[in-house]
Write a protein that binds this DNA or RNA. Structure first.
Length: 885
RNA sequence: GCCCGGAUGGCGAAAUCGGCAGACGCAGCGGACUUAAAAUCCGCAGGCCCGCAAGGGCUGUGGGGGUUCAAGUCCCCCUCCGGGCACCA
């Protein structure tokens, strides 16, 4: 396409205007400019291509989170990608070898739901959406290297999910177990713990997640809990907020396990004491006690308070409870009620607010530290899946235990006290408030451990337990293994076979991928859709050759996104998930950009996956992402954009009205990228007006700039100097914004200031007071500065000012401190901290000059007249403050 | 309950290291151009008060206290909004 100026700068035929002024300025018409450049860019498939490592340039991998192909970009995407695009373009212009890829998180439920609704195959629906969104992205002009595009629903991609899964299975990192799982009735499938938010589904905020018992595949992320936690401290380029969220999620808790023998009920002495029946009292050590073979292991973070334990509490689902209940129908019924309460509270997402209930089992456990016999209870607030599902209850030193003991009249025994001064000791300090839970305390009533500090006691008591074989120091995590089975169709088939003879067998590598069958009737009748396909289910055991059954569940789609960014480095490689040399070159990702909503989903799975791949010898890096940036949400009318609120702004509409440059530049201008952005259409119009001013100014003087030498000889007029000064200040400002806080809102504001300054000087410019060479530099640098934020306009103007080189790789302008420096500055002069006047001095003026000038100022004379100057604060370059009395 | 953010004109925001609060933009008002409008350009603009005006005074960054010559910025207390975690033993 030629750069025919007549066609590019003349307004398209407007409604009949009979007397067109010959002086009429060209109009800024993004609707005409943008599609033209879009076409030109599309004709250069290598334009945004990464170069080989041999390029010698420093590499820069900038990545935005890949979207789910819903069919429509929303403003959140536009903002996310505008940030990444600006950065990528800046990196190209500063001489980096940039990898800036894009792809599609293409498996997932919406495709299946759409299939049900419209009777269209998920694949077709998905691919059509991808095409639509790709069109939108291209229309906005994002600089993606589509040659490395990935689509996770293609077998070329998901076969590697299957390979990774088998490698994990071989190493015991993937395993199958029956367990309590989160079931979303809306999705008709299981969810991982990370996908349950306040007891609700992460995709259906009104749908309460149920608990079901199912056989499921799990990935042993807990094996990496310690490393995932420890390496967080290395991620200095991550927001502290995200690191904290991950830390909380992993939930490491140091403590000890202690095993209590359970008293053999038959061997226990008969006892008429009513407290024995009620289970409210601790019984003294009993010589004739015969420990049964039953044991209870509790987890506690406060083993130092174990002498204060007055009962043992079990989760309703604790195996021992089942045994007890089997022999005691009444207990069984009571436990069932407790379990119900717990289940309901869990499903409602407020286990924290459950009213505590419990029941005495009639059994006693023996405290191994002192031989005391503690009543064993079952309580509805004890969770089987945390710690050991059993606790020792210390009512004097734990809020929850205290509440429970009060309710049921259990003993409360104080075993730690605050440190006291001698004085307090003598005068009898107040008893501590019960429950007293302080970490810094002294032990009492604790046998041999008396008068130890509690932290020391924790160590000694754990060691004592270990020496005597009834416990040990241990660490518990809140993080649970990642359940990845999904009872849905549109996902990666789990590549496993079940043979009656040989059990669970992985599909041999040579048989991968296990293809997801097409033309499957999607049903929501329950069970995995693949299970209804005999031709899929029936297979041959690779070991014995006998009949085998295929796994019919598919993988969680978070598996797809856990490693996708590795494949971007060599997306067409069909012999491996990625080229390890390419990964070694490009990783870690220099900058990842996305929403904070993935702080503990995608971002923790990805870290886990990298560590597994490292242990498989596939990658060398411990962490995938060097720097993470979480952008704020896009808000309209005070709320997140959503269909239900009816406050959605469509990118297409914005582009049609104002152009892509204006829409994306507004997304960067309206707020700093890490903050929420309030979408105001008038603001887009404002940015569009600004771009129009740039367009008119540059095109107006393009000819003069083109004919000039590029290097201005001598600094000419003061106007020229002033303009060049502003230019270099602007270059400095924007360069610093890219290097630092990414406050592109101020970068764009700085360009606006520059344009305001330059257009204000138009009378001088048109009179020829500014040499063409200076003008040329200003126009050129202005266009360069604009390029990361409004690429269409920048490319258009770049050509108009006669530049032939590719703007994408044009060198970013360098600022010259000498040119940026002001030679005269204004210094505020205060009296007693209040601004009284402003003086003009030379930029480097010393204290003496400042003092003399300030004191000589008319207003200061008047204000200090007859008063004593008590103190003079002079900060060169900043201000003068005169303290008078 | 615990842990992070945040609160600045009518609105989005700026002030990066304790030094002129409100850059830049939106909306608004006044003007120029136009038969008119749109577009564009110029000017005004935190609030209150005095003044015909030029100009001047006071006040002002969620609230209260403090440190300092000087506080949006640092310290203490509090309110509200957003997010995360939460009988996790």
């Amino acid at each position: 396409m030629s750069a025919n100026k007549t066609t590019t700068t003349t307004a398209p035929a407007a409604p009949a205007e009979p007397s067109l002024s010959p002086l009429r300025e060209p109009r800024y018409t993004p609707a005409e400019i943008e599609p033209r450049w879009q076409q030109r860019w599309a004709d250069q498939p290598d334009l945004y291509g990464a170069e080989p490592a041999s390029s010698g340039k420093p590499k820069y991998y900038v990545l935005e989170m890949l979207p789910y192909p819903s069919g429509q970009l929303h403003m959140g995407h536009v903002r996310n990608y505008a940030i990444g695009d600006a950065l990528a373009r800046y990196m190209w212009m500063t001489g980096h070898n940039v990898l800036h890829p894009m792809g599609w998180d293409a498996f997932g439920l919406p495709a299946e739901n759409a299939a049900l609704k419209n009777n269209r195959p998920p694949r077709e629906w998905t691919l059509q959406n991808i095409a639509a969104m790709k069109r939108q992205m291209s229309r906005i002009g994002f600089s993606y290297d589509w040659r490395n595009e990935i689509t996770t629903c293609f077998p070329e991609y998901y076969r590697w999910n299957q390979m990774f899964f088998i490698r994990m299975f071989e190493r015991g990192l993937a395993y199958r177990k029956k367990s309590k799982v989160n079931w979303c009735p809306e999705c008709c499938t299981v969810l991982a713990n990370e996908q349950v938010i306040d007891g609700r589904c992460w995709r259906h905020e009104d749908t309460i997640v149920e608990q079901r018992d199912l056989e499921q595949w799990f990935l042993r992320i807990t094996n990496y809990a310690e490393e995932l936690l420890g390496d967080l401290s290395k991620l200095e380029g991550w927001p502290e907020k995200v690191r904290t969220m991950q830390r909380n999620w992993i939930g490491r808790s140091e403590g000890a396990e202690v095993t209590f023998d359970v008293e053999d009920a038959a061997g226990a002495p008969e006892d008429e004491d009513p407290s024995r029946q009620a289970g409210t009292a601790v019984l003294p050590a009993h010589e004739t006690v015969k420990p049964s073979d039953k044991k209870i292991t509790v987890f506690t973070t406060r083993i130092d308070t174990i002498f204060g334990a007055t009962s043992v509490q079990l989760a309703p689902e604790h195996p021992l409870v089942k045994e007890f209940a089997a022999a005691d129908a009444k207990l069984g019924a009571e436990v069932a009620a407790l379990l119900d309460q717990q289940k309901n509270a869990r499903e409602a997402g407020d286990i924290g607010a459950i009213e505590k209930h419990g029941v005495f089992t009639g059994h006693y456990a023996i405290n191994p530290f002192n031989g005391e016999r503690l009543p064993v209870w079952v309580a509805n607030y004890i969770l089987l899946d945390y710690g050991t599902g059993a606790i020792m209850s210390v009512p004097a030193h734990d809020e929850r235990d205290h509440e429970f003991a009060k309710k049921y009249g259990l003993e409360i025994r104080i075993v730690i006290l605050p440190h006291r001064t001698a004085d307090q000791e003598q005068n009898g300090a107040d008893e501590p408030l019960i429950p007293y839970t302080a970490e810094d305390s002294l032990l009492i009533n604790s046998g041999d451990f008396n008068s130890l500090g509690n932290l020391e006691a924790q160590k000694k008591m754990a060691a004592f337990a270990e020496e005597n074989g009834f416990g040990k120091a241990t660490v518990t995590y809140r993080l649970k293994d990642w359940g990845i089975s999904r009872q849905r169709y549109w996902g990666t088939p789990i590549p496993m076979l079940y043979c009656e003879k040989d059990g669970i067998i992985p599909v041999p590598d040579g048989d991968l991928p296990v293809l997801l069958p097409e033309n499957v009737e999607i049903t929501q009748t329950g069970g995995s859709p693949l299970g209804h396909l005999p031709e899929f289910v029936n297979a041959t055991c690779p070991k014995c050759g006998g009949p085998a059954r295929r796994e019919t569940d598919t993988m969680d789609t978070f598996v797809d996104s856990s490693w996708y960014f590795y494949r971007y480095t060599s997306a067409r490689d069909n012999s491996a998930p990625f080229d390890t040399a390419a990964v070694a070159y490009w990783f870690p990702i220099d900058q990842y950009i996305g929403g904070v909503e993935h702080a503990i989903l995608h971002l923790i799975y990805s870290r886990f996956w990298t560590k597994v791949m490292r242990d498989l010898g596939l990658v060398q890096n411990d962490e995938p992402i060097e720097r993470l940036f979480t952008q704020g949400m896009v808000i309209k009318d005070g709320a997140k954009m959503s269909k239900s609120r009816g406050n959605v702004v469509s990118p297409d509409e914005m582009i049609a009205r104002y152009g892509a440059d204006a829409a994306r530049a507004y997304a960067l201008f309206a707020a700093p990228p890490d903050r929420d952005l309030d979408w105001q259409e008038d603001g887009v119009a404002g940015v569009s007006r600004f771009l129009g001013r740039v367009f008119r100014f540059v095109t107006k003087y393009a000819d003069r700039a083109q004919s000039a030498n590029t290097v201005p000889s001598a600094p000419a007029s003061t106007t020229s100097q002033a303009l060049l000064r502003k230019l270099h200040q602007t270059i400095r400002k924007i360069t610093q914004d890219f290097a630092g806080r990414w406050h592109f809102n101020t970068s764009i504001a700085a360009i606006m200031e520059l344009v305001n300054t330059v257009t204000a000087a138009e009378p001088a410019i048109s009179k020829g007071e500014v040499p063409d060479a200076v003008l040329a530099v200003i126009l050129r640098d202005l266009v360069l500065l604009l390029a990361p934020f409004a690429p269409y306009l920048a490319f258009e103007l770049w050509e108009q000012i006669g530049q032939k080189d590719n703007l994408l790789r044009a060198p970013w302008p360098k600022y010259d401190e000498a040119l940026a420096r002001e030679d005269e500055i204004e210094i505020p002069v205060q009296i007693n901290g209040k601004l009284r006047t402003v003086i003009r001095v030379a930029a480097g003026a010393d204290e003496e000059t400042l003092r003399d000038t300030a004191l000589a100022a008319e207003k200061i004379q008047a204000a200090t007249d007859g008063k004593t100057v008590a103190k003079l604060i002079i900060v060169p370059g900043k201000l003068v403050n005169i303290v008078v009395k």
